[in-house]
Design a binder for these strands. Structure first.
Lengths: 138, 138
DNA sequence: GTGGCTGCAAATCATTTGCATATAC
DNA sequence: GTATATGCAAATGATTTGCAGCCAC
């Protein structure tokens, strides 16, 4: 059950701890781009000794090793994404949901934009998500 | 000297105060996307009575009235941009600079992406800026 | 066995809030 | 004159840090 995550950690030569496995699994199971507090509150139910510091430390290690990525929404909190590939996000102003977007922009592949060397691009699309639109129509 | 900013405020029927004019002028003169603290520290030199709360209040009013815009970089601070039109930003990981980018992505104009209604798009390009690249070559 | 990880408490830092005074209109 | 803005101090909330004990390897 945790094999998949265990392999991910071993590959990057990160020490395997139950907390790290739980956090990684949580992010894989919850693709809603949770905050540290959401991860902490959920996992604390099964592990009351869990510390928020450990969640901060763990997501940081996972991010540094390119296993997960940090996304920057407009909120005051940092959110994490199990995906580590380049993609974009849609932020719904109605329900607050954050949805992965996989469209490709021709400019995005460019090495140089206005003379600057581009390494990564993050796009944030804002508006009303599909689900909220359908709810409004009815 | 402050005519331009006075007109901007009057047009939106926002009360004109010296603090608001100074903050607006500061943002127009400093296109580096400053933080509230940077605005506050700079303006305090000529107006020691200035309060940081006023800076927070003012940028908020200016943002609500679509005179300036808030940008979301990876930092822990909110940064403001005198421009209010849709454009993107390049974040240099070498010098920390934030540069306006005006390229257009065909997908960005789309009303619908994956069925979601898009209203605005913010693109964050990360890498090494032109100036830092040139410095490295020498 | 040992270095790195965990968990707790205290510290930090950007931002927000409450409220009395001052000011724009 | 009145509603709104300013400025101060205190509160908040996410994140970081210091440190003692624990655990993965």
């Amino acid at each position: 059950m945790y094999e998949k995550y265990l392999i991910q950690l071993k590959e990057k030569q990160i020490k395997v701890t139950p907390q790290r496995l739980e956090i990684l699994k949580y992010l894989d199971d919850h693709r809603t781009h949770p905050t540290v507090d959401e991860i902490y509150t959920s996992l604390k139910k099964n592990n009351p000794a869990l510390s928020k510091t450990t969640v901060y430390n763990s997501v940081d290690v996972l991010k540094q090793n390119d296993i997960i990525q940090l996304i920057h929404t407009d909120g005051s909190e940092q959110r994490y994404d199990y995906r580590n590939d380049m993609h974009h996000h849609f932020l719904c102003r109605r329900c607050g949901g954050i949805i992965d977007i996989d469209i490709v922009c021709p400019n995005i592949g460019k090495t140089l934009v206005d003379g600057h060397k581009v390494e990564t691009v993050e796009g944030y699309f804002r508006g009303i998500c599909k689900t909220c639109l359908e709810r409004e129509e009815s």
